[in-house]
Write a protein that binds this DNA or RNA. Structure first.
Length: 485
RNA sequence: GGUCUCUUCGUCUAACGGUUAGGACACCAGGUUCUCAUCCUGGCAAUAUGGGUUCGAUUCCCGUAGAGAUCACCA
């Protein structure tokens, strides 16, 4: 039994961003490698951005990836509730404590005044910052305004003219001047706390030992530390994970391709590949192993082997890993994974014979980068009529007549083979010895045969295709090729 | 603009202050009974820059440059 507790605390604002996935994954690796607990907490304090149903889809996709929680809104736990809007009374209590201690203050400034102030600051090329207008109101003024029912927020009272030292586990000590820090809003006028308050209170109350969050929070880290000090609470270890960048640099954004884990799942990326890929973004195993399962990563994971520099998302490496993991699948698993893609593209229906599909998929397995590729790679198996240019049949500098002759010879040869002997190995035997005995070259026969059977420039070997297609269909396709003009 | 962070092959990254600066992806070439793919072999390719400290710097310190983050009653 130890006290290691980490959490993933997303906002329910839609699909899971790949950068967020990387953050969860590292939190998960750390928690599990330390033998600790992993908790899901929903940070829904921004009601405007909340998207209906996103908590459910979040839990779904995390489950698909293979992340298991020990506590959370969907499974309960001893530190609930795990949804922030169900904890409002708690935040009220703690914000009052801050008020009583003089670590926070009422602010009655209108939005209009704030905007005006900001415009003025911009005009004078100053950093936009709250001007502390309400910081020194006396209690009479406050009581009067409160009685008049004036709207207010509660702001954090940042100490003046000093500096604050914070420790990030990846970067070490960082020093900020408090005068550069804003008196941030802790409690909004609707009585709901901001992230800055809610996250700190919850992390404390939920006994979180290590906070893993994105790099974008580093700038507000000193304010968080100040808040811990105001409460007199112990500060957990903080790990600000570097961001994932686009190919051209810059935050991974929707405009330059897929950013949601759901997009990758739908295209047929495997969780194994996604996990492995994300792990390699900022972490490296001591022994240089680069193909790793979740279990292996957890076994080898160490905070010390993590970097603090941002990483570019390179889809080509993901493709490589995905192809690798697809090749490792056994054919039963792979065909159940691929079948939905074939059905969706209309090549098969739910009644299509499964054994036939398995054979087709087996031939495409080593060519797949992602599951959705199966439709394009294997469509010729399912079509009644192949559509290809006659010239595609021609191999090197043979004439079309030569090609047709060769196909004719093959037709006569294959026609004699018994249905029960129609297997890849036997076909191979017969065709190769025929070519050899007649002193011909493999390509003169195999290329046109392959095109006749597939209609494609690239495909598996003609013997493999013929085997899967069966005698009748194969002979039909050869006949069609011979009669093409 | 202020503040903070980051900087090794194109990309992800390794290297107690001493290595011919290593690996992976991508790319190129060769091999694997036709193409593609797989697989195997080989190749190309990096310490941003200027100063220090040191016998010795990719590694430590300072400056410069570049990139990124942040500066909401969003998270």
């Amino acid at each position: 039994m130890n006290n290691i507790r980490l959490r993933f605390a997303p906002s329910p604002t839609g699909f899971l961003h790949i950068g967020n996935l990387r953050t969860v994954l590292f939190g998960y690796f750390l928690a599990r490698s330390l033998g600790g607990k992993f908790i899901l907490r929903i940070e829904d304090t921004d009601q405007k951005r909340k998207v209906e149903g996103s908590v459910e889809s979040l839990i779904d996709i995390l489950k698909w990836v293979g992340i298991e929680f020990d506590e959370g809104p969907h499974i309960g736990g001893d530190f609930g509730p795990y949804i922030q809007t169900e904890r409002l009374a708690i935040y009220q209590k703690y914000v009052q404590e801050l008020l009583d201690k003089g670590e926070a203050y009422y602010c009655f400034c209108s939005e209009d005044r704030l905007t005006e102030m900001r415009l003025e600051q911009e005009k004078n090329k100053q950093a936009p910052k709250y001007d502390k207008h309400c910081r020194n109101l006396n209690s009479e003024e406050i009581q009067t305004k409160l009685k008049n029912g004036e709207a207010f927020v509660i702001r954090q009272k940042i100490p003046a003219e000093t500096s604050i030292e914070v420790i990030d586990e990846l970067r070490g000590k960082i020093v900020f001047k408090t005068d550069d820090l804003d008196d941030h809003v802790l409690m909004k006028s609707n009585g709901i706390p901001t992230y800055q308050l809610a996250a700190i209170v919850d992390d404390h109350l939920m006994n979180i030992s290590h906070v893993t969050r994105g790099d974008e929070w580093l700038a507000s880290f000193p304010k968080n530390v100040l808040l811990y000090k105001s409460f007199g609470w112990e500060i957990p270890k903080y790990i600000h994970l570097p961001l994932i960048l686009n190919k051209g640099g810059g935050k991974l954004s929707k405009r330059q391709g897929d950013v949601f884990v759901e997009n990758y799942r739908d295209k047929g990326y495997l969780p194994e590949a996604i996990i492995n890929f994300c792990a390699l973004l900022g972490w490296h195993a001591k022994d240089d192993q680069e193909i790793l399962s979740m279990d292996e990563i957890i076994k080898k994971f160490d905070l010390k082997d993590m970097g603090a520099s941002p990483a570019v998302f390179d889809i080509e490496k993901l493709d490589y890993l995905n192809g690798y993991y697809i090749r490792q699948k056994n054919i039963n698993d792979l065909s159940s994974l691929c079948r939905p893609y074939l059905e969706k593209s209309g090549l098969i229906n739910d009644k299509t014979n499964n054994d036939f599909i398995k054979k087709v998929i087996a031939l495409s397995q080593e060519r797949l980068k992602k599951l959705e590729d199966i439709s394009l790679l294997s469509s010729f198996f399912f079509k009644d009529k192949l559509d290809y240019d006659t010239n595609l049949l021609i191999w090197k500098n043979l004439s079309l007549d030569d090609i047709k002759n060769n196909l004719h010879e093959l037709y006569n040869l294959l026609e004699k083979i018994e249905e029960t002997d129609w297997t890849k190995d036997k076909l191979e035997n017969i065709i190769f010895s025929y070519i050899k005995n007649n002193n011909k070259k493999n390509g003169d026969y195999l290329w046109p045969l392959r095109v006749a059977l597939s209609g494609e420039k690239n495909s598996p070997s003609p013997l493999e295709i013929a085997d899967v297609l069966g005698k009748e269909k194969s002979l039909d396709r050869i006949k069609v090729a011979i009669s093409k003009n």
